[in-house]
């Protein structure tokens, strides 16, 4: 029925989400949680873990049910599965880490609307067997958590002069209050994207120079 899928392997599916196809920095998805809650490293980690739980759980279920879900109602089915996992994680956090739950507030519930999750489920888990789907979900969730921790670490370091609550910048450091406020989220994301664009460009130039050493010089 469905076209034959290319052979999938665990390793590459697991690793691609971490860096090469990072959901936040490369695909620029899931911005709402990536910027809203990342004013400290801890919040970024908790949010990343919660999203990982939902993504891995939903991907497993959808992948197992992929032959049973009628394609006309698949999106609503996915949403209900995702919303169920989000409800679970919401109550889990409220019970286990009430302090963090209060800080993240409605943004835990808003994981439902995170397009990284629906995107991976629609693009990958609904078409592939459980094993590789879980590998893909773990990789993407890892990449998402990595991105959130990175933004959170930068903002906490510059905005409060600390990391995970420990003072690391010393008493002489004047915190950049702006970094833990909303504008700091936009600005740090802009800088990170610019750095990624620079790395990408340098890599492209290097590979171009390696493949056509003389063409590269002639063009200049």
């Amino acid at each position: 029925m469905s076209p034959r899928q290319p052979e999938r392997h665990f390793g590459p599916e697991l690793l691609k989400g971490l860096w090469r196809e990072n959901p936040v920095f490369i695909a620029v998805l899931g911005l709402c949680p990536a910027l809203a809650v990342t004013n400290s490293l801890l919040n970024g980690l908790v949010m990343g873990a919660a999203t990982a739980f939902v993504l891995i759980g939903a991907a497993t279920i959808v992948s197992l049910l992929r032959r049973l879900i009628p394609s006309q109602v698949r999106i609503s089915t996915y949403i209900i599965i995702i919303a169920t996992f989000v409800t679970v994680v919401d109550f889990l956090l409220a019970a286990l880490m009430p302090e963090a739950h209060k800080q993240l507030g409605a943004f835990i519930a808003l994981i439902v609307a995170n397009c990284v999750i629906l995107g991976r489920i629609e693009a990958f888990a609904s078409k592939n067997p459980v094993g590789v789907s879980v590998a893909d979900a773990v990789g993407m969730a890892g990449g998402f958590t990595l991105a959130l921790s990175m933004i959170g670490a930068i903002r906490e370091l510059l905005g409060s002069g600390s990391l995970l609550g420990f003072d690391v910048m010393g008493p002489r450091f004047e915190p950049w209050a702006i970094m833990i406020l909303p504008p700091g989220g936009f600005l740090s994301m802009g800088v990170i994207l610019a750095v990624f664009a620079y790395l990408e460009k340098r890599k492209a130039r290097a590979s171009e120079a390696a493949s056509h050493p003389r063409d590269g010089e002639a063009a200049r």
Binding site: P183, F186, L187, M189, G190, L193, A194, A197, Y198, K201
Partner: peptide, 15 residues
């Protein structure tokens, strides 16, 4: 050229 596109949009949004 480096910040053209998405990165520039984020800077505008920040301001």
């Amino acid at each position: 050229e480096l910040v053209r596109g998405t990165a520039m949009s984020f800077f505008i949004a920040g301001v």
